[in-house]
Structures are given as structure tokens and as C-alpha cells.
């Protein structure tokens, strides 16, 4: 048997084959909707609503043309929001939330990793507890609060409420990275004459920079994918891209094709980032989980 065949046999023998088959099945299950939406975005309206779905169809860019700028002749202007504006909103809110979380969360993570003080674990747990309640459970009180404070339908308001998603991620993952730095390196810096802040910026931060970068990407993806906060706490001016897809549903019809095109465009940034940092992403996802 030549080595190639041998490898083939080893790969497809017994339990391994079963596992592989299972994973393939799951991948198909998970990726099929994306494939479907991708195909739909290139179909004409007639092909989409046809009772017999076609695998082979005549692709068209008309859906993309309709939602991108200089396409005033879009078929249904009424009630439809400017998709590109929403995409920009997404960028603004997500990046704003990420920046705030990094600025606040990274120093917090460092303190939680290094200093010992009363109630430290409680504070760390408090950050984590942001993620416990489903967003929908807190959204009504937050809505009333935002109305009262004038944060409703503002970028600032959305950036603040997005901290519920981004801050726990940043704090917990970055804390894991900081804990991995050998204490001696920081103590050596202490003896060398660096202040607490000097050690943080000149010793600790450079060492965890790659980790922080992948944390940022992961956090970006989570924030980008949020739907409920934007839907309830935003309005036409501040809706993120995820909410914009709803706008293609109107009383008379559902613009499936344009909705699919908008979805594809909205998926692109997190998808590209995920592929880019795939290796680090797995580590980032499991890091917070395994620590005791």
C-alpha cells in the first residue's frame, strides 16, 4: 500500500470516519443558510419567489445595485432605510464600543490579574454577569432609562449599552493573557525602578499585545452581530446594519433579494476578520473558559 493510501485508510477508519462524517454534517447544517442567502442575493425576484427553487439560475447584481448608493431608481423607496448609512452606523457603534471597552477593560483586566484586594473575584464575576441575562430581558428597563436620559437613538447610548457585550469579553480574555506573563518579569521591572504604570505600559502591554489584538477582533465580531439593542434603542438614524435588513420587509412585500444582499454585505467584515485570525480566535474563545 503506498503511503497516500495508508493515510487515506487511517483517516477513514472506524471512529475517526464517524467523527469526520458528523463534523461534515454539522458544517453543512451550519453553513447551508449562508450558502442559501449568498445564492439568493444573486437571484432575481422572480427566481426567489418561484415555487420550485433553482440551483442553476441566471445571476444578477440588481439586488446589490438596489441597496448601494446612486441607485435612486430602487423599486421600493417607501419606508426603506438607507442601507449604507446603517452599515456606517454599525462601524461607528461597534468600533466605538470596542475602543471604550479596550480603554477601560484592559487596565481593569490587568488589575484583576495582578493585584490582590478584597472582593477581587466578586468584581471579576460582576463583569461576567453582564452576559448572564439575555439582552431581551433587560431591554425594556434600559429603553425607559435611555428615553429619560436622552440616550435613546444616540450613538453614545448604543456604545454604552454595547458594553454589556464587549466589556466582559475584553476583561476576561485579557485577564487570562495578563496572568500568563511571568510575575518575575514584572517584579524585575519593579526592582529596576519602574512605577506601576510604567510596568503596565512598558512591560505588560507589549507582552500581551498579540492577545489583545485577537481579543479585539473577537469582541468586534460579537458586537457587530448584535441585533436587539440596535432595534429597540436605536431609530432610523442609528440603526446598525443587522437591523437594516428588517427594513426590506414592508406591508406589501418582502424584498428577499435586497435583504439577502444586505445580509451578505453585513456578514463580510466579521467573516473576513474571523478567517484572518482563525488560529488566535480558538485560543481566545477557550482561554476565559478554562481558567478557574
Amino acid at each position: 500500500m503506498n503511503p497516500k493510501r495508508k493515510r487515506f485508510h487511517r483517516l477513514f477508519s472506524g471512529r475517526k470516519a464517524g467523527v469526520l462524517l458528523g463534523l461534515c454534517g454539522y458544517a453543512l447544517f451550519a453553513l447551508f443558510p449562508i450558502l442559501w442567502v449568498g445564492m439568493m442575493s444573486f437571484k432575481s425576484h422572480r427566481d426567489i419567489v418561484s415555487p420550485t427553487p433553482e440551483i442553476l439560475f441566471r445571476p444578477t447584481l440588481e439586488n446589490y445595485r438596489a441597496i448601494l448608493p446612486r441607485s435612486q431608481e430602487g423599486p421600493h423607496e417607501t419606508g426603506r432605510m438607507d442601507f449604507l448609512q446603517c452599515f456606517r452606523n454599525s462601524l461607528r457603534i461597534t468600533l466605538g464600543a470596542l475602543a471604550l471597552s479596550l480603554a477601560v477593560g484592559v487596565p481593569a483586566a490587568y488589575v484583576l490579574a495582578r493585584l490582590s484586594f478584597r472582593g477581587k473575584e466578586d468584581i471579576a464575576f460582576l463583569f461576567l454577569s453582564f452576559r448572564f441575562a439575555p439582552e431581551i430581558a433587560v431591554i425594556i428597563p434600559v429603553y425607559l432609562l435611555f428615553k429619560e436620559l436622552g440616550l435613546y437613538n444616540t450613538y453614545l447610548g448604543l456604545i454604552l449599552v454595547y458594553q454589556l457585550i464587549t466589556l466582559p469579553l475584553v476583561v476576561w480574555i485579557a485577564r487570562g493573557y495578563f496572568e500568563e506573563i511571568s510575575k518575575e518579569v514584572e517584579q524585575a521591572a519593579q526592582l529596576d525602578g519602574y512605577s506601576w504604570w510604567g510596568i503596565f505600559t512598558r512591560v505588560a502591554l507589549p507582552l500581551v499585545k498579540p492577545g489583545i489584538a485577537s481579543t479585539a477582533v473577537l469582541t468586534f465580531i460579537f458586537a457587530w452581530n448584535n441585533f436587539v439593542f440596535g432595534l429597540i434603542l436605536g431609530a432610523r438614524e442609528t440603526f446598525p446594519g443587522t437591523v437594516a435588513t428588517l427594513g426590506f420587509i414592508s406591508y406589501e412585500s418582502v424584498l428577499w433579494g435586497q435583504m439577502a444582499a444586505a445580509t451578505v454585505i453585513t456578514i463580510l467584515p466579521p467573516l473576513a476578520l474571523s478567517i484572518f485570525i482563525q488560529k488566535h480566535l480558538v485560543r481566545g474563545l477557550t482561554l476565559g473558559a478554562v481558567r478557574g
Binding site: S182, E184, V185, Q187, A188, A189, V203, P206, L207
Partner: peptide, 9 residues
């Protein structure tokens, strides 16, 4: 230090 504690970067 026992593990030298050099700054890796």
C-alpha cells in the same frame, strides 16, 4: 530571578 525574568520582546 530563578527563571531569569528577561523581557521577551
Amino acid at each position: 530571578f530563578e527563571n531569569y525574568a528577561l523581557y521577551p520582546p
